[in-house]
């Protein structure tokens, strides 16, 4: 009887004091940091007033310089398309070389290192590097996004290949097929659909990033947008932002259509 009572009194869940202390410390630190950085309610209210003025100056959007706007948008789209085309083209073999289930480690680790390098910098940092290396203009933007694409699709593609069934690969190796033929017949059919998905997603990302690389002078609409910011040209800025939204929505619509074709 006394044993049953003891059992009832025992807590069903253990109290983990170290975890509780950690949560408490985290909350304390957040409060301290907010205080230190002057994030306070009063500061927030001042910010709101400022934001209202800013928004008011953006309306109505000024589309009077639409020719400049169109030129910039076209350049942005061109950067995205060229970068996606080359990015996809290069990431296909690099992703393949990085697949550890098909190739020995002395092949995969250089490929994986290259992919990791491509992923290690944010596109803005790549853009700054390439602007310094090849000068202002769309070429720097294209190179930036090619490397960003390789980092992204190359990694996902390698992972997709590592998840395939190796049974057909075994069968074709047993039939004496050359390695490349094995890739074409037993590997690509298993990953093609996913690869098209990655590529269209990357095109989407490239389109959004190509509106940004212009901020550091790597071509596209970003440069004009940054200039509008600096000249307090907020109504033109609103026009630029609206047209970027339109562009991204349009590409979303097109990519849905393209994916439907391949399904």
């Amino acid at each position: 009887m006394s044993g049953a009572e003891a059992f009832c009194r025992e807590r069903p869940f253990k109290v983990n004091w170290p975890v509780r202390c950690a949560w408490f410390a985290a909350i304390l630190y957040a409060l301290y940091a907010a205080n230190y950085l002057d994030v306070s309610w009063a500061r927030f209210v001042v910010g709101l007033g400022n934001g209202a003025t800013f928004l008011a100056e953006m309306v109505p959007p000024d589309f009077s310089r639409w020719q400049l706007l169109i030129d910039n948008l076209i350049e942005t789209v061109e950067i995205a398309i060229i970068a996606s085309a080359f990015g996809v083209l290069f990431s296909l073999p690099i992703g393949l070389l990085a697949a550890r289930n098909l190739l020995p480690s002395w092949v995969t680790w250089p490929a994986r290192t290259f992919i990791a390098l491509c992923r290690s910098f944010h596109p803005v940092i790549f853009a700054i590097l390439f602007v310094k290396a090849v000068g202002f203009g769309p070429l720097a933007g294209i190179l930036t996004l090619v490397f960003a694409s390789i980092g992204f699709i190359g990694k996902l593609f390698a992972e997709a290949i590592e998840e395939i069934s190796l049974k057909p690969v075994e069968a074709l190796r047993a039939s004496g097929a050359p390695f490349i033929s094995v890739i074409i017949y037993a590997v690509l059919p298993q990953v093609l659909n996913r690869f098209i998905g990655f590529a269209s997603y990357q095109f989407d990302a490239n389109l959004r990033n190509s509106t940004m690389v212009g901020i550091v002078g790597a071509g596209g609409i970003g440069g004009t947008m940054f200039a509008a910011f600096q000249r307090f040209d907020y109504d033109f800025l609103a026009a630029i932002l609206l047209s970027i939204i339109g562009l991204v929505m349009l590409s979303e619509f097109i990519s849905i259509r393209i994916k439907r074709v391949f399904q």
């Binding site: 069934s165 049974k167 057909p168 075994e170 069968a171 017949y185 037993a186 059919p189 298993q190 093609l192």
Partner: peptide, 8 residues
């Protein structure tokens, strides 16, 4: 398990 390429 046959080891065919399912998608072909």
């Amino acid at each position: 398990e046959f080891n065919l390429v399912e998608r072909l």
